Simulated scan of single mutants.
Amino acid sequence: MVARGWSPSERTRIGFYLAVGLLLVLNPFLVQAYDLGESRYEYQAYDVKLTENDFHFEDRSRVFLLSGVSGVDCDYWSEPWHCYLEERVAPGDVTVDSIQYHQSPPSKYVHFDDGFYRRHVERDDESTTISYDPVTAEAVAANVSLDVESAPEPLAEAVRQGSATSLRRIEMGYLVRDGDRYYYAGRSGSTDGFTGRWALSFIGTLLGLAMLAEAGQLSFERQSRDE
């Protein structure tokens, strides 16, 4: 039996306004909890074979080359101008009458066409000496690689699954060691997020409050009619 002045359509409208209004009011918490609208980054992992003086990929054309190998400068991915100067020196050393080299290069190793070298920097009060000693690819891999258990989660997942998607942006690629095998894991692409997500979320909250107010008004009018 339907109460006087109270129709199923009114009940439906009030229920709709309450449900949708509450959802809109809570939408900032949903945006935060599920990272809605955030940029997402894609990662790939590729099997690496170690030769005497190189990291070998079976099909290099399929390898995404968005980033280099952490711990190795002048590699296949990027060759800034100083790499061409360094290649002229290796193997050997060069001394310059300057102490402006305040910090050693972040990477111990460099890779040139003829192989890998370990870079050494020595300074005294008047000069800086940079030397290059040849090393094998195996020695470089052992020193710069990360164990899969300690690698950043997106890279570890890419090694285990072949690919991964994450909210975390990792600039450099890494050699990752899993047992006795090596993989190159790095960022292969990204999906842009929605920069106005919080403004839209705020508008949704205001709309939700308006719908809850409308539901309250409809319920009040119903009760007034029933009295």
Results as ranks from 00 to 15, higher is better:
residue 204 G to D: 03
residue 121 V to S: 08
residue 138 E to G: 04
residue 8 P to G: 06
residue 191 T to I: 12
residue 97 D to H: 10
residue 164 A to H: 03
residue 14 I to D: 02
residue 139 A to Y: 08
residue 166 S to D: 13
residue 67 S to E: 10
residue 101 Y to E: 08
residue 199 A to V: 15
residue 185 A to W: 07
residue 133 D to E: 15
residue 193 G to W: 07
residue 154 P to T: 11
residue 155 L to M: 08
residue 198 W to H: 09
residue 28 P to V: 10
residue 187 R to M: 13
residue 85 L to W: 12
residue 4 R to P: 11
residue 88 R to N: 13
residue 205 T to K: 04
residue 149 E to Y: 07
residue 19 A to K: 05
residue 135 V to C: 08
residue 172 M to A: 14
residue 166 S to G: 04
residue 47 D to M: 11
residue 224 S to G: 04
residue 122 E to Y: 09
residue 121 V to Y: 07
residue 14 I to H: 01
residue 220 F to P: 00
residue 88 R to E: 15
residue 187 R to Q: 12
residue 212 L to M: 11
residue 58 E to Q: 11
residue 100 Q to E: 14
residue 84 Y to A: 14
residue 67 S to G: 14
residue 15 G to H: 05
residue 57 F to S: 03
residue 186 G to A: 14
residue 80 P to R: 06
residue 85 L to G: 13
residue 182 Y to E: 05
residue 129 T to M: 03
residue 168 R to Q: 14
residue 86 E to V: 01
residue 130 I to A: 06
residue 8 P to S: 06
residue 146 L to P: 01
residue 72 V to H: 06
residue 125 D to A: 10
residue 211 M to Q: 08
residue 21 G to T: 01
residue 200 L to C: 08
residue 136 T to G: 14
residue 13 R to G: 09
residue 149 E to L: 12
residue 142 A to T: 13
residue 26 L to Y: 10
residue 132 Y to M: 03
residue 141 A to S: 09
residue 95 T to N: 05
residue 129 T to Q: 04
residue 114 D to Q: 09
residue 211 M to H: 03
residue 17 Y to V: 00
residue 3 A to Q: 10
residue 71 G to N: 01
residue 8 P to D: 05
residue 56 H to Q: 15
residue 156 A to C: 03
residue 50 L to K: 06
residue 122 E to K: 11
residue 125 D to P: 00
residue 150 S to W: 10
residue 163 S to M: 10
residue 14 I to W: 02
residue 2 V to A: 13
residue 174 Y to F: 15
